[in-house]
């Protein structure tokens, strides 16, 4: 069941096209990772989804309701945490949490106290005295004390320390177990790898890749480190082998996933004494899309090069 969906979402600011036909789906009960560098259009997409910006073209729906027209109805069932939390300097953290929870309409009193304890927040301090991380905690506590069906989190952990980041991850997983859906925009890729069921990568306002992590990995290269008794001949001529680095006794290179079988057959002829393979990390995936436009693939090309 689709909780959130965009079709051909386009947003222009004057001449500048911030979003160019974004298609995105988040299903019930899943954590969807939304990744891309700064300025790629993550926050713009989220703001259109929140009905704060009006789409130039295309459709954005949440719970099958229109994100612009039915914003208030939708917002009763969602919770949002922005990356850069600016709060009212003269209100206390506790007051802001109560205000947010109350305006959303649902209330979870016991959850609030528990989260304040877990995140180690002092709710009696004025917001102006909070650091970036503490302001984020305020927004996170307000979000997770609400009974929401969808959580929209826009780089919510950029100011948190590793301990608090773990508390955050627990909150996300707990929400997921309760059957809630989460849209997590982030550029902390290890976090996305740990939490997300599916991932969408955005670049310059277009979704260039989306699917489960496994699906994405299939499209990419595996890193191999091989030691052989005889030097491997003609390695560089084999289709699908990249970035060969020769060390004293071993050789390291990357292989396109679909060519793996051919390559293994080839190297087995030279007496393999040691073979290490590591799956591509999300970071490898991500980097391949962003490192120098000339070197890598065009959007949609997958792993073929």
């Amino acid at each position: 069941m689709r909780v959130l969906s965009t079709k051909g979402l386009t947003k222009k600011f004057g001449q500048f096209t911030a979003l160019n036909g974004v298609d995105l789906d988040v299903n019930k009960g899943e954590v969807f990772g939304f990744i891309g560098p700064n300025g790629a259009g993550k926050s713009t997409t989220i703001r259109v989804l929140l009905g704060i910006l009006k789409a130039t073209k295309g459709k954005a729906t949440i719970f099958e309701l229109d994100a612009w027209k039915d914003a208030v109805e939708i917002h009763k069932r969602i919770a949002y945490v922005p990356g850069d939390v600016t709060l009212w300097p003269n209100l206390t953290g506790g007051e802001v949490i109560d205000l947010f929870v109350k305006l959303r309409g649902t209330n979870h009193k016991s959850k609030r106290e528990e989260l304040i304890r877990k995140f180690k927040l002092d709710p009696t301090k004025k917001c102006r005295t909070y650091s970036k991380g503490n302001r984020q905690k305020v927004a996170l506590i307000a979000a997770f004390s609400s009974e929401a069906d969808l959580y929209i989190l826009d780089e919510p952990t950029s100011g948190l320390d590793p301990l608090m980041e773990r508390v955050f991850q627990e909150c996300v997983l707990e929400a997921k177990q309760d059957g809630k859906s989460i849209l997590l925009s982030s550029h902390i890729l290890s976090e996305v790898e740990r939490l997300c069921d599916r991932v969408g990568i955005i670049r310059e306002g277009e979704i260039i890749e989306s699917g489960t992590l496994d699906e994405l990995r299939h499209l990419t290269r595996t890193q191999l480190q091989v030691e052989t008794s005889k030097p491997i001949a003609n390695l560089s001529n084999i289709d699908g082998v990249h970035n060969i680095e020769k060390q004293e006794r071993s050789v390291t290179f990357q292989v396109d996933s679909e060519k793996l079988e051919d390559v293994i057959k080839h190297i087995s002829m030279f007496g393999v004494t040691k073979l290490e393979s590591s799956p591509p990390t999300l970071e490898d995936l991500f980097m391949r899309h962003y490192e120098g436009d000339d070197r890598t693939l065009k959007p949609g090309d997958g792993g073929k090069s």
Partner: peptide, 22 residues
């Protein structure tokens, strides 16, 4: 600096209350 309220008063918990309180 004396600690502030840890909970919002009922007055604050509405857009109108917020607009005035600020």
């Amino acid at each position: 600096s004396k600690p502030g309220r840890s909970n919002a008063s009922p007055f604050l918990q509405s857009p109108l209350g917020l607009a005035f309180r600020l």
